[in-house]
Design a protein around this nucleic acid. Structure first.
Length: 622
RNA sequence: GGGAUCGUAGUUCAGCUGGUUAGAACGCCGGCCUGUCACGCCGGAGGUCGCGAGUUCGAGUCUCGUCGGUCCCGCCA
């Protein structure tokens, strides 16, 4: 036995191989490892306190750290629940102490011992179990571990590439365990709430028919039906509507969705939705339900109390005041119209934009008149990255308005500018002149960037907001036609139906988004449930009858057999959990996420396939 | 498809206007240590400077290309 442990110590790799363990010391040690035998875990590593003093316990877990004092060895034993200090004292058990000499980080062990009070002054107030320690009399080494490629403490920030390559190690870190626990609690809060509210959880297919509307589909070739393909669902949209037509009244599902689009910090190729649909309802019913659900989740998971009811804002107001359809209302910096000042100025750029139907709007960066030129230049560059031709700026000092463009603003125009932007000495005015869409886009982004730079968002503030009355349609300039902004089954607002022929772009939808701290966490709509209306909308979208039949024939048929009025909403579950976990990146709340290039670094997915598989599927690369 | 940024020891980073043998901390390995908990002390090992070209007497450093990570624009009904 003893010789065996010596082998183990001597062969532990120093330099780590990059792609996992190549040394075979683990193999050579297998015979020296202990069996679990009849040992049973009596407690976890996060529960022992003064109350168990004197108890004999058996703990199992990972060696978080080993502190060898020559005479006495301390091991911090870690599991999902916490950390307990184990003491190996030669006077208590010479064998256990001798054996503990071989322990290294991340070895998996079982210890048997007695819960003892720590000596006076040796307590660790930072551990729940810090008042006690387990005096070990018997140790079983269940598994060894190579030296791990990065430390598991939360002290040093390890690069994400390394973390993702060894995700199973990364997930051992306390912060990641907390994130997944938060996620779990959000699942349970959701299921509990919706179950109590009479919602039925129903699964819908993952292998579905591809429809070229919307995002790119992930495709799955069918072997049995050679040359045909399934798509993975971008959402269970049509199925949940069919469940309403089937009379299920209240449906929900916590479900994976798939979109083959480029990734972002808040976008993964596969992501999770809380998908909900209800029959015999209008906007108010769904919004009220979604609001209660959100309040319930936030209360259960984070003990937050959100306002009741959530504030509401129309899409038009959101775009006008915040330049965004998901405004972060935790700070000011609202967009202000500056057209009168632009008209009164001699500034050619503003004049020509206004003459061609554009807008001049601005943000008043309060108290920023002393911002150095370099920072302003960076803001200009930022605006240009977002598509602006330029960003005009004017400092409001004690002496009045100062800037290179101030000379184009006669006194009257200056006064108008000051009143339009509610400016005071000490402020910095940032102005954009462009099409209304571009003005909103640029100033909306600039507003967020300024708030970030100026640290205007106080920690632990939660601003939920409903955005309503979205446009039904959106102009697709490339295809020169209208496309659905939400999806083609969204019902138009009744009072706007007459506009469908005359001014389709002005028709508002019975759609709503739930925004939390500037993040879209849910979105939904009242659906079309009468066939004539669905056909009318398809016409607007330039989808002819043949195409509509081919793509959505089953849904159109279902509409003819007594479809109830219905509507629903879907939550971006990953985003919601990320917010609750205080993470700005949804990868932090997903166990095994993909990189920006939609690659799994650990399992190296996607990978190639055998020629045989391709042949069976009737697929050839070109 | 485009832009920005990063890539140096296992990890996190430093490495100046191009110039001797590429450094630090943590980790790892060995030794010592009976009350630590970021243990301590002594010693040691560990590098394809992402990869490939180019400029140069000389490249971690400059140029071009390429691969990969991250953030953003486009895209995401």
């Amino acid at each position: 036995m003893q010789a065996g442990w010596a082998v183990l110590q001597g062969t532990r790799d120093t330099g780590n191989s990059r792609r996992g363990p190549t040394s075979n010391h683990t193999d050579s040690m297998t015979q020296q490892l202990d069996r679990l035998g009849d040992w049973q875990r009596s407690h976890d590593c996060g529960t022992l306190t003064d109350h168990q003093l004197g108890d004999e316990v058996t703990l199992m877990g990972w060696v978080a750290t080993r502190r060898d004092h020559g005479g006495v060895i301390f091991v911090d034993l870690r599991d999902r629940y916490g950390i307990t200090q184990v003491v190996f004292n030669p006077q208590h058990s010479a064998t256990a102490h001798e054996k503990a000499d071989a322990l290294r980080s991340e070895f998996v062990i079982a210890v048997h011992g007695v819960v003892e009070q720590r000596p006076e002054g040796m307590r660790n107030p930072r551990l729940v179990t810090g008042a006690i320690e387990v005096n070990c009399d018997d140790l079983r080494i269940l598994n060894a571990s190579e030296a791990i490629p990065f430390q598991l403490d939360d002290q040093t920030e390890v690069g994400e590439e390394t973390r993702l390559r060894y995700r199973y190690l990364d997930l051992r870190r306390t912060s990641m365990q907390q994130n997944l626990i938060t996620r779990h609690r959000a699942y349970q809060a959701t299921r509990g709430y919706l179950d109590r509210e009479q919602f039925l959880e129903v699964e819908t297919p993952f292998l579905i028919r591809s429809t070229p509307e919307g995002a790119r589909d992930y495709l799955v070739p069918s072997r049995v039906n050679r040359g045909r393909f399934f798509a993975l669902p971008q959402s269970p949209q049509t199925y949940k509507q069919l469940l309403m037509m089937a009379g299920f009244d209240r449906y929900f599902q916590i479900v994976k969705c798939f979109r083959d689009e480029d990734l972002r910090a808040d976008r993964q190729p596969e992501f999770t939705q809380i998908d909900i649909e209800m029959s015999f309802v209008a906007e108010q019913d769904i919004m009220q339900m979604a609001e209660s659900l959100t309040r319930h989740i936030c209360a259960e998971v984070c003990e937050l109390s959100l306002p009741e009811p959530f504030p509401r804002m129309t899409y038009a107001e959101a775009m006008n005041r915040f330049g965004s359809d998901k405004p972060d209302t935790r700070f000011g910096l609202e967009l202000k119209g500056a057209e009168p000042a632009g008209r009164a100025s001699d500034y050619k750029i503003f004049q020509s934009v206004l003459d061609s139907g554009g807008q001049v709007k601005g943000i008043n960066a309060k108290g920023c008149s002393d911002l150095p030129r370099s920072r302003i230049d960076a803001l200009i560059a930022f605006a240009q990255e977002h598509g602006a031709k330029g960003l005009s700026w004017i400092k409001h000092t004690d002496k009045g308005l100062e800037a290179s463009i101030a000379k184009f603003f006669p006194d009257e125009a200056q006064q108008l500018l000051i009143s339009c932007l509610e400016s005071e000495p000490g402020d910095l005015l940032l102005l954009v002149a462009d099409s209304p869409e571009m003005v909103a886009k640029v100033l909306g982004a600039l507003r967020l960037e300024l708030a970030r730079q100026l640290e205007l968002v106080a920690a632990d503030t939660w601003h939920p907001l409903w955005v309503t009355e979205f446009p039904l349609l959106e102009r697709d300039d490339e295809a020169n036609r209208f496309v659905a902004k939400h999806h083609p089954f969204t019902s138009p607002m009744e009072e706007d139906v007459p506009l469908m022929e005359s001014d389709p772009g002005a028709v508002r939808a019975r759609a709503y988004d739930l925004v939390l701290n500037g993040n879209e966490v849910a979105g939904g709509s009242i659906r079309i449930f009468q066939q004539q209306m669905q056909e009318q909308v398809f016409r607007l979208l330039a989808i002819d009858e043949q195409e509509a039949r081919a793509k959505f024939g089953f849904l159109l048929d279902a509409l003819t057999y007594g479809a109830p009025p219905h509507g629903g909403i879907a939550f971006g579950f990953d985003r919601l959990v990320a917010l609750l976990a205080g993470q700005s990146n949804i990868r932090e709340v997903i166990a095994f996420p993909k990189t920006n290039k939609a690659v799994g670094l650990m399992e190296e997915a996607p990978g190639g396939v055998d020629e045989m598989q391709m042949r069976e599927l009737g697929i050839r690369l070109r």
